[in-house]
């Protein structure tokens, strides 16, 4: 396997980005991340993006963003209708083939134009579920009640996750939910979708993230302490809710094993956990213990930009390694109802 590392990243997340299109706010990130390490699009061998036409409300919306990448003369590029973390995975595979040394990856969405929790009903089974329009909070609430009634988690533990995420988010300039709340404050919240409370749900944001991967010596030239990808894997559970055990995550467990999460200590983990319940599922599935700091950025409970949040988890983990805050980290990305699909990435500094 080739050694491939994250060498730079740049993000923007705000509750609502008004009067700028996705392209307009992504161009400064796509070019800024290259400028930050002194490269241009001519140095980039592969460009790969993740976004959603359903959220943009327009077919082939990603093509206009590619235009913003400086694709003249023609560039090699690809797009996934998924979180940017899967664009990173595609780029990593392409780099393993040995023909590309530097890749630009970005993911973004501006969901404030509609009601994201309702738009997400369109990802459900089109015959049996989507016509009933269960919104994303309701679908997670069904899993949350099962987790609570089976003794897997308590409302207090979920409140602890929410309170700690707010505490961490206060130190993250990109977080959008930074008001501090104690466990007691959160326990006193009225449910938004019983048993989920406002602090249990994702902090929806508009924005995006751009990131550069580089291989071998090129990575060392571009970054003083690259965050090397030591393992990366993604798995999916069944689409139908009724045939899954919603109180565990088989896909995250298998992806974590394949990526080698348990091979050594984990200093910190950036988990794609839109709900407090999702974080509990993931920490269990990945076998993370008390010695691992969970979501030092505040995670998706601090800022959740659909289609970019997974890529941002990788960027946050990599930046901390580059800064020397730790030596080994886990980042995850997720997709689908109740974390149906999970990508797990292990990053290490030298």
């Amino acid at each position: 396997m080739r050694d491939i590392a994250v060498v730079a990243s740049m993000q923007r997340q705000e509750p609502s980005i008004d009067n700028e299109s996705e392209v307009e706010y992504m161009v400064p990130l796509m070019h800024g991340v290259k400028e930050s390490i002194g490269i241009t699009q001519a140095d980039v061998g592969f460009t790969c993006s993740g976004s959603s036409d359903f959220i943009a409300g327009q077919a082939f919306s990603f093509v206009m963003t590619v235009d913003g990448a400086n694709p003249v003369p023609p560039i090699s590029e690809s797009h996934v209708e998924m979180d940017g973390a899967w664009a990173l995975y595609e780029a990593w595979v392409k780099m393993q083939m040995g023909e590309v040394d530097i890749a630009l990856i970005y993911g973004y969405s501006k969901s404030s134009g509609g009601s994201l929790r309702d738009v997400l009903a369109t990802q459900m089974d089109p015959y049996y579920v989507a016509p009933l329009w269960p919104d994303a909070f309701a679908i997670e609430a069904l899993a949350a009640r099962q987790m609570i009634e089976s003794g897997k988690v308590s409302l207090e533990r979920l409140a602890e996750v929410a309170s700690r995420s707010r505490e961490h988010a206060a130190n993250n300039p990109h977080a959008v939910r930074t008001a501090q709340k104690s466990v007691a404050d959160i326990m006193a919240e009225s449910p938004i979708m019983d048993p989920l409370r406002p602090s249990d749900i994702p902090a929806s944001a508009d924005g995006g993230c751009a990131l550069i991967l580089a291989a071998g010596d090129r990575a060392k030239e571009l970054c003083e302490r690259p965050a090397w990808i030591k393992g990366i894997d993604h798995r999916t559970d069944a689409h139908t809710l009724g045939v899954r055990d919603l109180t565990t995550s088989m896909s995250a467990r298998i992806a974590g094993e394949k990526a080698g999460v348990g091979n050594d200590k984990v200093d910190f983990a950036e988990l794609y956990a839109p709900f407090t319940t999702s974080e509990v599922l993931l920490t269990d599935a990945l076998g993370l213990g008390d010695d691992t700091v969970i979501n030092p950025s505040g995670g998706t409970l601090g800022a959740h930009t659909m289609m970019a949040s997974g890529l941002i988890r990788i960027a946050e983990a990599a930046q901390r390694i580059t800064n020397g805050d730790g030596d080994r980290a886990v980042a995850t990305a997720g997709s689908g109802p109740n974390l149906q699909q999970n990508l797990v990435c292990v990053l290490e500094g030298e």
Binding site: A138, A141, L142, A144, R145, M193, D194, L196
Partner: peptide, 11 residues
Amino acid sequence: TWTWNGEPRKQ
């Protein structure tokens, strides 16, 4: 398992 949908959404 269940949850209460107190305000039906328009669709």
